[in-house]
Design a protein around this nucleic acid. Sequence first.
DNA 1: GTCATTTTGACAGCATGCTGACATAATGAC
DNA 2: GTCATTATGTCAGCATGCTGTCAAAATGAC
Lengths: 172, 172
Amino acid sequence: MSGRTPEGDALTALVLPAFALNGEFLAAAAMITAPHELTPAQWQVLGAVLDGPLPVSEIARRIGLTRQSVQRVANDVAGRGWAEWSDNPRHRRAKLLVPTERGREAIGAIVVEQQEWADAVGARFTAEDLRALTELAGRVVAASRAYRNATRTGPPSGPGADPGPAAARSGA
Amino acid sequence: MSGRTPEGDALTALVLPAFALNGEFLAAAAMITAPHELTPAQWQVLGAVLDGPLPVSEIARRIGLTRQSVQRVANDVAGRGWAEWSDNPRHRRAKLLVPTERGREAIGAIVVEQQEWADAVGARFTAEDLRALTELAGRVVAASRAYRNATRTGPPSGPGADPGPAAARSGA
DNA sequence: GTCATTTTGACAGCATGCTGACATAATGAC
DNA sequence: GTCATTATGTCAGCATGCTGTCAAAATGAC
């Protein structure tokens, strides 16, 4: 972790901001959802079906998680009365997750509070600041991804069917 | 998630970059540590004792995790031969974690590769870019933390002894 | 020296995310 | 209609992080 590059300590400059941001946002999400007895993960899954019932695999696709992960949360959410499973007329297996009225209300309140958070934080920055943050982060991600692609040893990952959300979340 | 603030969609501008950065960095860490048969968490714990043996609670303090989390990883690392427990002359209970030669070599290689990653990515940015990223992220964290402090309902969290690394990681 | 407090290690359990496997339903080629 | 492929749901297990709880060791007040 010693600063020995011409650019200064690139490692620190890159990693610490990302971790700090992520940790703070997770904490904010937990603060907002906790009073409604929902976890951030449950909120995300429930929020995905606000605009209409969806099967587990479609929810997973939309929020960028695996079917298996979403399935567990969805079952939990349904078990606690925030949503229900309804039959799918087109597919015998793919039951649809649909929020109950209670779930709909909770999500609505959370969405409002979360927007308040975003507005309050965002108000402290100029549009240019926010744009710069997005642009910089995007470039960093692209640069790291390019490095990973150039460095990887194995074959270039054949066209598997399932492995959608994989590499980006392998660590923690 | 609709853009209705004067600053544009603050929610998207704040959250997406943070998640993207975090996910990419975790993936990079996993890519670097995996060939050495270490996980990012093991690397972090082992790296903490490179400069000298430390007890679990001190490692936890340094890397910002709980004693319990570090303890599990440390036991795992020791069980796999990357480190050993040595008696602490000053404290009968607090055994010291000390890397084996094998562990020291693995960590050394990982540190080098990780610096290569940081240099490669950092080289694509000006010093001003990196400075701006750090500064912006720091301001965002400060702003969100201020919002949380102003919004929290319960009492201002009395001076508990243990609860060090808590809120910042409650979500995931 | 004794006793309350703090520190530390440890065990148990929860929350999330992942991957690996399987079985079954849906689809499409033939 | 049959059969290989794809999509899905589901079970099992791993990796990390957290909190809760205890017991023992270390410390400090007296």
